[in-house]
Measured scan of single mutants.
Amino acid sequence: GATAVSEWTEYKTADGKTLYYNNRTLESTWEKPQELK
């Protein structure tokens, strides 16, 4: 079967924080998503 690919993209901001963006739900979060833990 196909492996579930994470929908989350990780961005590094200018101040060194990490922003997570979900390509499916168009949601963005500063918290690390469950799927990435």
Rank of each mutant, 00 (worst) to 15 (best):
W30G: 05
D15R: 01
D15Q: 04
G16W: 00
D15V: 02
T25H: 02
K37R: 12
E27N: 04
Y11K: 06
K12T: 14
D15H: 06
Y21N: 02
T25M: 00
T29G: 03
W30H: 11
N23W: 11
K37F: 12
V5L: 11
P33G: 01
T18Y: 07
L19A: 09
L36Y: 12
G16A: 01
Y20K: 00
L26W: 09
D15S: 10
K37V: 14
Y20M: 01
Q34I: 13
T25V: 02
E31W: 05
P33R: 00
R24T: 15
W8A: 00
T9L: 08
K32F: 04
D15Y: 04
G16R: 00
E27A: 05
N23R: 06
T29N: 03
G1L: 14
E27K: 06
K17Q: 10
E7S: 04
K12Y: 10
T3E: 11
L19W: 15
K12D: 04
N23A: 06
R24H: 15
T9G: 04
T29Y: 07
N22K: 00
K12M: 11
E10F: 07
V5D: 11
T18Q: 03
K32Q: 09
K32N: 05
R24L: 15
L26Q: 15
L26A: 12
N23L: 06
L19P: 01
G1Q: 13
Y20N: 01
E31C: 05
T18K: 05
S28A: 10
V5T: 14
L19V: 11
K17I: 06
L36M: 09
T13E: 04
A2G: 13
A14L: 10
S6D: 11
R24D: 11
T29E: 03
L19R: 08
Y21I: 15
Y11I: 15
T13L: 11
P33E: 02
S6Q: 11
E7A: 07
A2N: 13
E27C: 00
P33Q: 02
A4K: 06
K12L: 11
W8G: 01
E27V: 09
R24M: 15
W30C: 04
R24A: 15
T3D: 13
K32T: 09
T29Q: 10
L36C: 05
T13D: 09
L26M: 15
E31Y: 06
A14P: 13
W8Y: 02
K37D: 13
K17P: 02
Q34G: 10
T25E: 02
K12S: 07
Y20Q: 00
T9W: 07
E7R: 02
S6K: 09
E31V: 12
A4P: 13
K37Q: 14
A4S: 14
K17V: 07
G16L: 01
G16S: 01
K37E: 14
L36F: 12
T18D: 03
A2P: 12
N22M: 00
K32R: 11
S6P: 11
V5H: 12
S28G: 05
L26D: 13
A2M: 14
R24W: 15
L19N: 03
A4E: 14
K12P: 06
P33S: 01
V5S: 13
A4Y: 10
G16V: 00
A14V: 10
L36W: 09
K32S: 04
Y11V: 14
Q34E: 15
G16N: 03
A4T: 13
K12W: 07
A14H: 12
E31R: 05
A14F: 07
Y11F: 12
A2Y: 13
T29R: 08
E10C: 13
S28P: 03
P33N: 01
Q34Y: 10
Y21D: 03
L19E: 06
Y20P: 01
A2Q: 11
Y20L: 01
W8P: 00
T18S: 07
G1T: 14
K17H: 07
T9K: 06
K12V: 12
E10D: 02
T25P: 02
A14Q: 10
E10S: 09
T18F: 05
E31Q: 08
T29H: 06
T18R: 03
G16K: 01
T3I: 12
S28I: 15
T25Q: 01
E35P: 07
L26N: 15
K32V: 09
L19Q: 05
N22P: 03
L19S: 04
Q34W: 10
T9Y: 09
T9I: 14
N23D: 09
N22I: 00
W8M: 00
N22H: 01
T25K: 00
P33F: 02
E10L: 09
T25L: 03
N22V: 00
Y11G: 03
P33V: 01
E31P: 02
V5K: 07
E7L: 06
Y11E: 04
A2F: 12
S6F: 07
E10A: 11
S28M: 14
A14M: 09
L36R: 03
G1N: 13
A14G: 07
E7K: 02
A2I: 13
G1R: 02
Y21S: 03
L26R: 08
Y20A: 01
Y20D: 02
E10G: 03
T29M: 05
K37H: 12
G1F: 14
Y21G: 01
L36N: 06
E10Y: 07
T13G: 07
P33K: 02
D15E: 07
T9E: 11
D15K: 03
W30K: 06
T9Q: 10
R24Q: 15
E35Q: 08
G1W: 12
E35R: 02
N23T: 11
A14I: 11
W8I: 02
K37A: 11
K17S: 07
V5E: 11
N22L: 01
E35H: 06
S6Y: 08
Y20S: 01
Q34R: 08
S28D: 03
K17Y: 08
A2L: 12
T25D: 03
V5F: 12
E7M: 05
W8K: 01
Q34N: 13
R24N: 15
W8L: 01
W8F: 02
K17E: 06
W30A: 10
K32I: 10
S6N: 11
Y21K: 04
N22G: 00
N23F: 07
T29D: 02
E7N: 05
A4G: 12
E27H: 04
D15L: 04
V5C: 10
S28V: 15
E27Y: 04
Q34M: 11
T13I: 05
L19K: 10
A14S: 11
T29I: 05
L36E: 05
L26P: 03
T13Y: 10
T18N: 04
K37I: 14
W30D: 09
A2E: 12
T13V: 05
T25A: 01
E35D: 10
E10T: 10
T13W: 05
P33M: 01
R24K: 15
Y20G: 01
E7I: 07
E10H: 04
A4W: 14
W30I: 07
T29W: 04
N22W: 00
S28Y: 15
Y11C: 12
E10K: 04
D15N: 09
P33I: 02
Y21A: 02
S6W: 10
Y21E: 05
G16E: 02
A2W: 12
N23K: 09
E35S: 10
L19H: 08
A4I: 13
A2S: 14
T13A: 08
N22E: 02
N23S: 06
P33A: 01
V5R: 03
S28R: 06
L19G: 08
A14R: 07
L26K: 15
S28Q: 11
T3A: 14
N23P: 06
P33Y: 02
K37S: 14
E35W: 04
E31N: 07
E31M: 07
P33H: 02
N23I: 09
